[in-house]
């Protein structure tokens, strides 16, 4: 059974069918790309998958569980984590605290224990610190653990956002244009980071991207969206050489 199964997903804003009859299947461990021209509905798909929008029609299943009508928080708990096109960090908090926010639901103790610093507080905080440091090491951010998130350079902010998403221990990671605004060096480093995430965590990833070098470099399968509809779906090489796709998106 596929990890993510999306059937006949549709949403309309007024008269505009932003996403129309969208189907997607992602197997466990795959790195899947979602591409398409501007306004094709890629981010809308992400927002549907994460419960920001509720679809008019269709079913979303994660690991067999129907998550179509769940809200953002419940979907995160069900196992989907995401990053944003414009980086959204907790900018006034330190790097390690950003990751520890992601760990909130995994290491629990009561509010009273937290306020009085008694009971499970110390053992749980220690466990959280260790887990957060493990993650930061993977993303090579361990030297910046006490830096404010807003003081990190752009590339590292993106890494931290991915680290924070990984902290919620998701089954599926959604990356919304991770290479947006990056120079070629940063993009190359990002490709390494994504490869690392797959290797270290055995993670299934769905990403939206415009950077064709990145898409053709790391994605195994692609779905091309155009005007809210699926134009082509399949192996990266086959899709990118498809004439219809080239006409619609890559510009001849």
């Amino acid at each position: 059974m596929s990890l993510l199964q999306v059937n006949n997903l549709s949403i309309a804003f007024g008269g505009l069918r932003a996403v129309d009859d969208f189907n997607l299947e992602i197997e466990k461990g795959e790195l899947y790309g979602l591409i398409g021209p501007n306004g094709a509905g890629k981010t809308t798909v992400f927002n549907l998958l994460t419960g920001v929008y509720k679809p008019n029609e269709g079913i979303i299943r994660l690991d067999g569980e129907d998550i179509t009508r769940k809200n953002t928080i419940e979907i995160n708990h069900a196992g989907i984590a995401r990053t944003f096109q414009n980086i959204r960090l907790f900018h006034q908090m330190s790097v390690i605290d950003n990751v520890k926010v992601g760990l909130t639901e995994r290491f629990k103790y009561s509010g009273l224990e937290g306020v009085l610093h008694i009971g499970r507080y110390h053992s749980m905080e220690k466990a959280m610190d260790e887990e957060a440091m493990k993650l930061l090491k993977v993303f090579d951010l361990d030297m910046e653990r006490d830096t404010l998130a807003s003081n990190l350079p752009y590339g590292k902010q993106r890494k931290l956002e991915i680290a924070r998403a990984m902290a919620t221990s998701p089954k599926l990671l959604l990356l919304d244009e991770p290479a947006a605004g990056m120079n070629p060096n940063e993009t190359a480093e990002l490709m390494d980071t994504i490869a690392l995430v797959r290797k270290e965590f055995d993670m299934t990833i769905l990403l939206i991207e415009h950077d064709m070098k990145l898409v053709s470099g790391i994605c195994e399968k692609l779905t091309v969206l155009n005007f809210g509809r699926v134009l082509k779906q399949g192996e990266t090489k086959a899709v990118l050489s498809d004439l219809e796709v080239i006409a619609a998106y890559l510009g001849g």
Binding site: A81, F90, T104
Partner: peptide, 21 residues
């Protein structure tokens, strides 16, 4: 504490906080 960090996360970016569960 865990709750305090969550409160500050809501302050800094409520959309990202929600997406972090």
């Amino acid at each position: 504490s865990r709750d305090g960090r969550a409160i500050m996360a809501v302050r800094d970016n409520s959309i990202a906080a929600e997406a972090s569960g």
